[in-house]
Amino acid sequence: MKLLLLYLLAFTGGVFLAIQAGFNSQLGSLLKQPVLAVIATSISSAFFGSLFIFSMTKDRITFNLIYQIPWYLWFIGGLFSFIGISLYFYTIPRLGVSKMIVAGLCGQLLFSLLAGHFGWLNLPLEPITTKRIIGILVIITGIILINDN
């Protein structure tokens, strides 16, 4: 049951990201500047995240903990998020949201397959198996079918 709930949460997160991508693509198009939409997304995400942290959690972050974390971890995720979201907002009006999501998902899956296999970014090791390769090929076939007019 717990695993099913985790899959449901992951699925819901994907739905929310697709919705967010659609709204922010509209914002970027209206502003004629996708990067401003990324900034708006980042600011509003920080606002809602702060509300959640201050209202829902009992654990407080201490300065000692902050100093123990390597400095680059505070920024590198934001850099990759900025680039990834900017690319999404740029490509959605040109490709459509479904094609962008499918292509983006394919990139995520291929990278995660390699990152898990080699343990990049301190991720748990997940060896590449025949079943996973077949799964990726099926997804790539789906991308081709979705993008075929």
Rank of each mutant, 00 (worst) to 15 (best):
L3T: 11
L9T: 12
F11G: 09
T12W: 07
T12V: 11
T12K: 03
G14H: 10
Q20T: 14
A21L: 13
G22I: 08
F23A: 09
S25F: 02
Q26H: 08
T41K: 08
A46H: 05
L51Q: 06
L51R: 02
K58P: 00
D59F: 08
R60K: 15
F63T: 04
N64K: 13
L65C: 07
I66A: 10
P70Y: 13
W71L: 13
W71A: 08
L73N: 10
W74N: 09
F75E: 06
G77K: 12
L79V: 15
F80T: 09
F80S: 10
S81W: 09
G84V: 11
S86Y: 14
F89E: 12
Y90P: 00
Y90C: 03
T91I: 05
I92V: 15
R94W: 02
R94D: 05
M100H: 01
M100G: 05
I101A: 13
A103P: 00
G104C: 10
L105I: 08
G107V: 11
L109R: 02
L110Q: 08
L113D: 05
L113M: 15
G116T: 03
G116I: 03
H117Y: 11
H117I: 04
N122F: 07
N122P: 00
N122W: 07
L123S: 08
I128P: 02
T129R: 09
R132Y: 04
R132F: 06
R132Q: 12
I134F: 04
G135Q: 05
G135R: 05
L137N: 05
V138T: 08
T141L: 14
T141A: 15
T141K: 03
G142Q: 03
I143W: 10
I143H: 00
L145K: 12
I146P: 01
N147H: 09
D148V: 04
